[in-house]
Design a protein around this nucleic acid. Structure first.
Length: 340
DNA sequence: TCAATTTGACCCCGG
DNA sequence: CCCGGGGTCAAATTG
């Protein structure tokens, strides 16, 4: 519990469980709203201390000290930014290999400016989902589906490269099940076409969350086996993956008041958010609704007492091994002590 | 009334 | 240049 009010940082760590990536956000505390005693700042200074000092809350500080601290703060911020980008990039790569629909966090590389379209491209081009010469097609093993992985290069005639992120997913479903074909919820259907080589119509979907998002999906039953649905995902989301309605309910609505920890499940993997600023404890799995079967299995595992215990132990190991955290914890405890 | 889906027409590209 | 097919648009339809 003391940790709730200590660290100023939000720490993230990622690890893989089975096939699903798990994002762990530890929202450890809010900045202290009262000034720490100068006498207690004699030890290792936390970033928060640096920040608060840099904000001029230490009137006796010299300009040189302030400049040094500002530079230090800027350096730490830059490091933090780079680490965040790296995590996003690594996580994006992982998602691109593991998520059946690629709805995960956009990769850092998405920010790269796209090469202008080559010569013969449609003007109303909606094909600007392509930004590289890598075409990744992966048939993942979903349920009883077949699995294969293919990489295709797609250079342009003018010698430049464009990046097209394409995933192909084969899923075996009950023939009467139209859930995937209709693909409601986060995809908006904008067209349907019967193609020459397949009697089943091909449905075209766009991301329904953001109009500017260029991600597309094509869904069509296999010509050979109508129980197999092939979904092709093209492009990357250019927006954070939104939470579904009710996925992250207000802490106050949960039993006994606030919930310090919640797990949101989406197709790119469950996200565990630990908000240690709240009272109480426990882990809650929220909305595994459309999760894949293996995802649901992961959800059950995540919700299990064994996993929670392991999670707490893992967190404890990570936190106690973090010098900054322990320093901040000690400082916070000192601040919390009555001024005798 | 509004949002989502359907569906015929159109556009673009490759052969 | 023509034609066929895939992909997209947008008006009509539906819930």
């Amino acid at each position: 519990p003391p940790a709730r009010t200590v660290a100023e940082a939000c720490m993230c760590c990622f690890w893989t469980m089975d096939t699903a990536p798990v994002c762990l956000d530890l929202m450890v505390g809010r900045p202290m709203d009262h000034e720490p005693s100068r006498a207690r700042c004699t030890g290792t200074r936390t970033e928060a201390d640096v920040a608060s000092s840099a904000c001029g809350r230490a009137p006796s500080m010299t300009n040189d000290e302030a400049k040094i601290l500002e530079a230090k703060l800027a350096q730490v911020s830059e490091e933090n930014r780079k680490l965040t980008e790296m995590i996003a990039y690594l996580y994006g790569n992982q998602v691109s290999r593991q998520s059946p629909d690629g709805e995960g966090q956009p990769r850092a590389s998405t920010a790269a400016s796209p090469t202008p379209p080559a010569s013969k491209k449609r003007s109303r081009d909606s094909m600007d989902t392509s930004h590289s010469c890598d075409v990744e097609i992966s048939n993942r093993n979903v349920g009883t589906g077949e699995a294969e992985h293919v990489d295709v290069d797609s250079p342009l005639s003018n010698g430049t490269c464009r990046r097209i992120k394409v995933k192909k997913v084969c899923t075996r479903i009950d023939p009467s099940d139209t859930s995937l074909v209709s693909a409601k919820s986060q995809w908006r259907k904008y067209g349907q076409k019967v193609t020459r080589d397949n009697p089943s119509p091909r449905a075209y979907f766009r991301c329904a969350f953001a109009p500017s998002c260029r991600v597309k999906k094509k869904v069509q039953r296999s010509a050979e086996d109508s129980s197999v649905v092939e979904a092709t995902y093209e492009g990357e989301h250019n927006h954070p993956h939104p939470t579904r309605a009710g996925e992250l309910p207000s802490c106050a609505t949960q039993g006994g008041g606030s919930v310090p920890c919640s797990i949101s499940i989406n197709s790119s993997g469950p996200t565990i958010t630990l908000d240690l600023t709240k009272n109480g404890g426990g882990v809650q799995v929220v909305d595994a609704g459309e999760a894949q079967p293996d995802m649901k299995k992961v959800c059950r595992e995540v919700a299990s007492p064994e996993f929670q215990r392991a999670l707490v132990e893992q967190m404890a190991r990570e936190l106690t091994g973090d010098q900054k955290f322990t320093d901040a914890l000690a400082a916070a405890i000192l601040r919390k002590l009555p001024d005798y």
